[in-house]
Design a protein around this nucleic acid. Sequence first.
DNA 1: TTGTATGCGTTATCAA
DNA 2: TTGATAACGCATACAA
Lengths: 332, 332
Amino acid sequence: MIGIATIKEIAKLAGVSIATVSRTLNNSPAVSEKTKQKVRKVIAQTDYSPNVLGRNLRLNQTRTVLVILQTLANAFFSKVIRGMERIANERGYKLLICMTNAKEESERNYLDMLLNRQVDGIIFAGSFINETNILDLEKRFPMVTCTGYLQHQTMPYVSIDDYQAAYDAICVLLGKGYRNIAMLSVANGFLSTALREKGYLDALKDYGISIDPSMMIYGDYGFTSGAAAISALLDQGKLPDAVFAISDNMAAGVLQTCLDRGIQIPQELGIIGFDNNNISRYMRPQLSTVGQPRAELGEVAMNLLIDQIEGKDIPQRKVILPHEIILRDSTR
Amino acid sequence: MIGIATIKEIAKLAGVSIATVSRTLNNSPAVSEKTKQKVRKVIAQTDYSPNVLGRNLRLNQTRTVLVILQTLANAFFSKVIRGMERIANERGYKLLICMTNAKEESERNYLDMLLNRQVDGIIFAGSFINETNILDLEKRFPMVTCTGYLQHQTMPYVSIDDYQAAYDAICVLLGKGYRNIAMLSVANGFLSTALREKGYLDALKDYGISIDPSMMIYGDYGFTSGAAAISALLDQGKLPDAVFAISDNMAAGVLQTCLDRGIQIPQELGIIGFDNNNISRYMRPQLSTVGQPRAELGEVAMNLLIDQIEGKDIPQRKVILPHEIILRDSTR
DNA sequence: TTGTATGCGTTATCAA
DNA sequence: TTGATAACGCATACAA
């Protein structure tokens, strides 16, 4: 009853060979129903559960996939992961999550799980840290990036068109009459960030507005950093008439800071965020934002990964999903 | 260079036995420095990485622990998990996270990783679903609950004193002159919830205030549910002069709904939340709340777990950490 | 339909 | 100091 038996003990108790027990466990048709019953009875009595380590070692697969996150604190990814989980369940895989806290050593550590065949594949949710590690691994193991990717990576990815999303957001602001638009970005070197910055610059340029470099400010995706960045700008006596932030949290920081300083939103300052996180609906006025199809991003990523694991053809290795400009009350 | 070698191939290349390679890998003193160098050179050249499956099978351990979460969407746990991770790293364990979405089947699924010896131990962050499963397992495997627990569980846990925390929060409100205090709870059957409700009731009773059952309202920890619950109450024509919510998200929902309806916070209605999540500082007015030592909760839980795994004595199996009443602007 | 025996990649015991 | 070899728990080719 207590203590975990092995296949050997079950075999002895049931009076059959371990091969027969193994076949029963895998429901092989090559075992008579009678024998199966006998074995199953013993299994039930003894509360036996097969050691997956042994099985994995033998089969060289785990039916487990790992999602690597930089931080759990980003609400954006919780819905993405829900999408991944749905597909993983459907296709018979377990989903494990780990976080690196943006530490390279930690990333390397979890990457090892792939080398060690503790998981069958990995999805990067967001960007990764050490490019060389990954570019080496991606040739040999099933890997997918979801939402962040490198310029020359060969592994499949799924993302929105970050350039176009930013371009569209700025066009909306321009269309509403805002002319002196600041961008609140993150100095992280991610391609997605670079693309959003380029979208911002190109939209202004295409509209014939000259770029003021001091209007490009930086945070770390967080509320506090957004608040600090806009404060610094205002303290310099510079007042843009709109801010495009690449995360809703930063946009919310801008919003509260401006309200605290008595700046009217959206009359004096328009704000548009990114991600359509919950916080964008909690704020007053509610934040306009750029929405991403979060669940679908996760679903596509997981399907790409499992297809790879199972050796299926992946015709479409680079998937771009549509974004959405969501207008609420922080833009006039 | 490409393809993952095995210990056998390394042995052949280095011209030694697999035993020597294994010893080198584990840095055994019983290998001459010269031989070690030779083996290490081959390992470096071939980019070999030991198969952990084989090692785990042999050692019957994984040096990996699993944290079971109901949802990733709860910001509260992200800091708790940071604490866990710190300790896990320190003590040489990998930390994996999974989520059940409150589905029993999914919980069972991940619990199996323990039976299958894919992980050495499990921490429940928050409450679990199927008690009988767990009460059976906790006798045989290293397990710890962090923040949620059952009345008669034998496995170690770490938590704040939910009863006292709620009692204290209500006393603060009473001290500020609020008399008609509603409680916004969750109908989930968790012991932590029951204790918070009892704390609320006892504090009122001890103060000589009679209980109005209609002032006990329910949500699901989320912002929207808090907004809906207070709306329903107000629509009935009932206006409490304070609300004690057992999550900051619900408290924030109450706050915004009341502001939208033109109710003055904190003059007409005081609000106190629970958890000291980021959102409590993002709102205006900022939310008063009950703070928990999140990182420490995670650290203690992880230490309890690893002590168990390593067969160390655990003198203190039930750890209660101090809470903190944080007063901001949503209470007068 | 069942059993025997081998191997998956390690570590550890025992000899040499 | 090193090597041969037996486990660890399982799945499967081959024999019976």
